[in-house]
Design a protein around this nucleic acid. Structure first.
Length: 815
RNA sequence: GCGGACGUGGCGGAAUUGGCAGACGCGUAUGGCUUAGGACCAUAUGGAGAAAUCCAUGGGGGUUCAAUUCCCUCCGUCCGCACCA
């Protein structure tokens, strides 16, 4: 390749990035006469280097931002850094640098990389969550939650990652492993800080209905996570005592088939039941054994269900049958009441356990297809629908009907109560780490837990800390930090040393972007009212339940306390549209450091320029699908951009007598229409192919007057390859940035066709084609088609039964 | 087990209120331009066949004049949740 045929991307990209910065073209402000558009990407953790996932995420968004700007929207497109978190602390231990120094350096580095991609961020609005001017508002929001009873401290079994030396929220435990370090998570009894997110569960579930523009997958995942399940709590009485044992079930229709009861080993009743009994020791040993198992082992489906008989009996309240009480590892304390009624005939887990321990089995639902009397042949539990049998007054009903009636009957007779159970737990937010927002609370021996006064915020992180990397929060060794005065009694007190989970920081950053320098509240109510909700949010699917659930909760809470003024069709939901971009793969695997298959964006930018990288990453696959990295693909994108660039030469050499080509005119307007529609719907890969088609058409008509078509091509490519577009636009004689030149409009009149080629089908198979005028009548069309040689040939002796016309597309002759 | 997404050439992918399957790109082939080219230009490119033609959107079935698109069923892949009672 000769140098002359390669477009000077290095020079151009630098030139325009500087121009955009100098002229502040991406700064957003409240405007009365323009519609607003808030475009947001999930802000990155400042690891120091951007990877292809970032590139893809931010490029998708940047195209939308530039398109909306060109269309005349007032676009808010901010960027910031989710800057607290463990990697900084680990780096501190390893490199003997302070987490703050390390983080701020990484932020600088990353900001430069993002700028080199030419992204249209309003850098005046940048926020970093690790700075006191940001995290003081974390503390402020925490205090507001505290005031309203949404924050509490409780000793409980919590998830503990020994490797990270800290607690984890349920949402952070994936397959029993730590979401960050992938090491096994254990349960530990600790006193921790929780947020009562469960208070909002109904709203979090119901409002999912409003999110029409979210991927169904994310909606499903959140529903799943909230895990609403409706059933009945049934009260069993213990034989020989007044103790009541409530169990939860969604299958009250099987209550007559309950042949034993099972408690979780941790159930508080267990110790009381076995006290002084002969099997006490054996059972305590069993409980001990189960407690030592990790959750992954305990819940593995291939593990045999183990259990012990307690020696106690419970009374089934519907028929006064005495049934044995067992404990078993397959019943979990944290769900329902920690106790179940076992119906081995109609629940596979109970079935397996009953077989194992020789327990009674009683059929109460008969499948409609099966014959009665197969009790002894059961090979597995029957979990489907059917007709009630052995169920007293409910015999003969369908089980679905019985479900309703039994629930009502239980409520009326005091045997049970309709209950709704949720999977969602309260959110554990305290972490035993340094690099996070200090929880603004003081422990006083006489006053107990006392919140820090609002005017004393922020509680700043002390700079001087030791990072031993061995046990306990580094903050708990900083005497000057711990020593505090009780805000209430002024006595000597102790400052809380736990910090907040970083998901707290990211649950409201989108609101901070509306007024990032505001110092009277987390955000300016008026500014937020103008910009919110986020019109388009773009990020990875990995936050489907974590960040996206917390953010929805925060927004609702902040609205409830009157801080947020939201009036949109989605009410107190923060994100109108959500796009979850697919992952970038190499040889079918996710790019990752550990796999060593990373392609560094910097090297691509160096060799081909950022416009090529941007174009390629969007062209290779639809935004929400996975994409496979291909070096060949990069070259193809680069070739195409060079082809576009060479249009400048052809414009210089335009023949004096060049005529406007009606074909090219049509192609031009068709391209505007197609690209605009595709951009509207984030069909970016096909938008790019439409631009390619236009460029191909220009080259086919290169002898004609291509000026309009070339101008449009530059516009249409501008969201994807903004640097090249700016440069070409300028070289085509324009002084203003293409960003302020608007977006081309298409005119239907150029799209109208005089004639059209219609396919002629006989019995649904294409047999010929005819060129006809667009406004041909059906009679004339029929005549033309039937006089076509190929058709005549085919139809010789056939009788035409039907003649179907799809205007401008095809005719189908049925014989 | 429950829930979600998906299955189209050698490859990435187009086409959805049912209407010409394979747009666009990659790769490949042939030719041109060239001292040369991994640059550029032109042509071809789902499979079978000399051709007419036939076959083809994971498999099978259905609805229809017409199905990649709608329905049923089976197979397969990916993702989320899960001894959740």
């Amino acid at each position: 390749m000769s140098e002359a045929s390669i477009y000077p991307f290095k020079k151009i990209e630098k030139k325009w990035q500087e121009a955009w910065r100098k002229n502040n073209v991406f700064s957003a402000s409240v405007s009365c006469d323009k519609p607003k558009y808030y475009l947001l990407e999930m802000f990155p953790y400042p690891s120091g280097r951007i990877h292809m996932g970032h590139v893809r995420n931010y490029t998708i968004a940047d195209v939308a931002a530039r398109y909306k700007m060109a269309q005349g929207y007032q676009v808010l497109h901010p960027m910031g850094f989710d800057a607290f978190g463990q990697p900084a602390e680990n780096a501190a231990i390893k490199n003997k640098t302070h987490p703050k120094t390390w983080t701020l350096k990484c932020i600088d580095w990353m900001r430069k990389e993002l700028e080199a991609m030419g992204f249209s961020y309003d850098w005046n609005r940048e926020v970093s969550t690790c700075l006191p001017e940001y995290y003081r508002w974390n503390q402020w929001i925490f205090l507001k939650m505290f005031e309203r009873g949404l924050v509490y401290r409780k000793e409980a079994l919590v998830n503990w990652c020994a490797d990270c030396a800290t607690t984890l929220a349920n949402e952070e435990v994936i397959d029993g492993k730590c979401w960050r370090c992938k090491k096994e998570v254990v349960q530990k009894d600790l006193e921790q800080w929780f947020i009562r997110i469960t208070e909002y569960k109904e709203r979090l579930l119901d409002d999912l209905e409003k999110l029409d523009h979210w991927p169904s997958q994310v909606i499903a995942m959140q529903k799943n996570w909230l895990g609403k399940s409706e059933g009945v709590e049934i009260y069993f009485r213990m034989k020989g005592s007044d103790t009541i044992l409530p169990v939860f079930t969604t299958r009250q229709d099987t209550i007559f088939g309950a042949t034993y009861v099972v408690l979780a080993p941790e159930h508080p009743l267990v110790k009381q039941l076995i006290k002084d009994s002969p099997q006490e020791k054996e059972i305590l040993d069993f409980i001990d054994k189960v407690a030592k198992e990790t959750k992954t082992v305990r819940t593995a489906s291939d593990v045999k269900k183990e259990g012990r008989f307690t020696g106690a009996y419970a009374i089934n309240p519907v028929n006064n049958n005495e049934i044995p009480v067992w404990i078993a590892d397959y019943v979990l304390m944290e769900y329902g009441t920690g106790a179940i009624m076992a119906v081995p005939a109609h629940d596979q887990r109970d079935f397996l356990f009953a077989k194992e321990h020789n327990l009674e089995l009683k059929i109460v639902i008969e499948s409609q297809n099966s014959k009665a009397g197969r009790q002894n042949e059961l090979l597995e539990a029957y979990e489907g629908d059917g007709i009630q049998v052995n169920s007293a007054q409910f015999d003969g009903l369908s089980n679905q009907e019985a479900k309703v009636k039994i629930a009502r009957w239980m409520e009326e007779s005091g045997i049970g109560k309709k209950t709704t159970n949720w999977r969602l737990r309260d959110w554990l937010i305290s972490r035993q780490r340094y690099w996070g927002t200090p929880i603004p609370v003081i422990h006083c021996d006489s006053c107990g837990i006392v919140p820090v006064k609002e005017e004393d915020l922020p509680v700043e992180l002390p700079d001087k800390v030791e990072f031993s990397g061995t046990g306990g929060s580094p903050l708990s060794y900083v005497k000057s930090f711990i020593q505090a005065e009780c805000p209430r009694c002024k006595g000597r007190a102790r400052r809380e040393t736990d910090t907040m989970a970083t998901f707290f920081d990211s649950s409201w950053y989108f609101l901070r972007f509306c007024s990032p320098k505001y110092d009277k509240a987390p955000f300016d109510k008026k500014e937020a009212a103008y910009w919110m909700p986020v019109d388009q949010y773009i990020g990875g699917i990995e936050h489907a339940v974590l960040h996206l659930l917390y953010s929805r909760f925060f927004t609702k809470f902040l609205r409830d306390i009157g801080l947020l003024d939201l009036s949109s069709p989605i009410g107190d939901e923060p994100f109108l549209r959500l796009l979850t971009q697919g992952m970038v793969l190499k040889e079918g695997e996710v790019m990752s450091k550990s796999r060593g298959n990373i392609v560094d964006p910097d090297s691509i930018i160096k060799n081909y320029g950022t416009d090529t990288l941007r174009l390629y990453i969007l062209f290779a696959a639809p935004p929400e699908a996975e994409m496979e990295w291909s070096e060949r693909g990069i070259e193809g994108a680069f070739r195409f951009l060079n082809r576009v660039w060479r249009l400048l030469d052809h414009l210089d050499r335009l023949p004096k007598d060049a005529q406007i080509s009606p074909i090219l005119k049509k192609e031009t307007h068709r391209a505007i229409k197609k690209v605009s529609q595709d951009l509207e719907n984030f069909k970016l890969n096909t938008a790019i192919s439409a631009v390619m088609e236009l460029v191909n058409a220009i080259y086919r008509e290169i002898e004609t007057d291509i000026r309009e078509a070339a101008r449009v091509a530059v516009f249409l490519i501008s969201p994807f390859a903004p640097h090249m577009a700016e440069e070409m636009w300028q070289r085509m004689g324009n002084n203003e940035s293409i960003l302020s030149a608007g977006w081309p409009e298409y005119d239907e009149k150029f799209l109208r066709e005089e004639t059209v080629t219609m396919a002629v089908q006989i019995n649904g198979k294409v047999r010929s084609k005819v060129d006809v005028s667009c406004d041909i009548t059906e009679d004339e069309l029929k005549k033309t088609v039937l006089s076509d040689d190929k058709v005549k040939d085919r139809l010789k002796d056939e009788v035409i039964k039907k003649f179907i016309v799809i205007p401008k597309k095809l005719v189908n002759i049925v014989v």
